[in-house]
Nucleic acid binder design. Structure first.
Lengths: 214, 214
DNA sequence: ATTTGTCAATTAAACGTTTGTTTAATTCAA
DNA sequence: TTGAATTAAACAAACGTTTAATTGACAAAT
């Protein structure tokens, strides 16, 4: 992929993430990327094809990481859960614009092709996490839980704090105009701790106790 | 509020939820609502003001429910958690378009006024849930957890399954073109069961056990 | 070594739509 | 008869895309 093409993709990713797909014009992208307006059509064919190319680009970039984690025989299921949490929090916080686009696009109408790509991506990830949890169940470490819903909890919790920076800054008790790295660092720590804590209680087979004392 | 004004709001809500704010034109709204194009400006002033009016409308509609739940002395903290889950799942699933708008708008750039309104709404809800959980902690039923993050987990888990119908249908193992009521019913049951299960393990003070057996 | 040919890269300009909003005239009810 | 409700038409601006002309680099031919 040529440097210029990739550069356009990265700029567009940031803009889409900030202002949404419809909220970003081809002219905005061209100007921010420092290229002529016509180059977007020249390289990608259309604005929508650009979005498809972006998803493709990022998918390839991520590919295989979950699979590697799964194959690693030296890690216990509990280790893998911790690694999973760390991986997802880091991955999402370090690619906020792209993640926001995926979130927006999954909801909005848009082309069927794009929707299918996003869903295929989700399904593939779900499959890998499914393996980790069922492995833990077979080893009598995890109790029986609703696995797809648990995945939704992980992703949803992270997303709840990445979609609105102002809200998150309120929760984290930092200034809204705080440095991006400070924001990411604080949110990352908080999310990882909470999710590990949550999943430990949720998955631990020893917590299959009787009814609640109320 | 006049009937026609309200009717426009409801129609716009559905369209915004389906196609996004930018993806819906004023002409789309006018046509779907069966009113003249100029009536939107006449009633609301502008498309953006319409969105503000919509948020106001729905906020008033919800107002007080969480507060009532909180005040109810006859319910134990565990009861309140269950009620909370049921309330939120029902509330969101029965107002999917509006909820999707709130999600989209919180991320996208848009006007500061709208963002502030959404955040104020979130903060108010957080405050109520905070009361429920701290009450449970004082009564030695709940352990110490990260409360804002826990709220994020509840909202995020629900949102993860409301933003993409196709994905959710895959998980629920139903046809994508299934009846809306069937979809809502199935998803509602699944989400409520998972969230109650999850929160029980997460909050129960008896689960403050030692290190994990790995 | 210089010229020529070729094709991709790049440009400014224009295309036809669609956008949100406004205008000015008309309808309608009180 | 007064004022709100409603309408069709028009507005300028912004949109995504296309066009046609120009530039630039590099291989082939002289």
């Amino acid at each position: 992929m040529s440097d210029k093409r990739e550069h356009i993709l990265i700029v567009a990713e940031r803009l889409f993430g900030e202002r949404g797909f419809d909220g970003t014009s081809v002219r905005d992208i061209a100007q921010s990327a420092g290229v002529n307006l016509a180059m977007i059509s020249y390289y990608f064919g259309s604005k929508e094809k650009l979005l498809e190319a972006m998803i493709q680009f990022r998918s390839e970039y991520t590919y295989g990481i979950l699979e590697e984690l799964n194959k690693d025989q030296s890690l216990s299921p509990w280790d893998k859960i911790d690694r999973l949490v760390e991986f997802y929090v880091d991955r999402i916080l370090n690619n906020l614009p792209f993640h926001n686009i995926m979130y927006q696009e999954a909801t909005a109408f848009r082309s069927e092709e794009i929707k299918e790509k996003i869903i295929a991506l989700k399904m593939r990830n779900l499959e890998q996490i499914n393996k980790i949890i069922t492995d833990g169940q077979e080893k009598k470490l995890f109790r029986r839980v609703d696995i797809p819903m648990t995945v939704g909890t992980i992703m949803g919790t992270i997303s709840a704090y990445t979609q609105s920076r102002v809200y998150s800054c309120n929760i984290l008790a930092i200034r809204e105009d705080a440095d991006d790295n400070v924001f990411r660092e604080k949110l990352s720590k908080r999310l990882k701790a909470h999710l590990k804590h949550l999943l430990r209680a949720h998955l631990d087979i020893r917590n299959d106790t009787g009814p609640i004392e109320s």
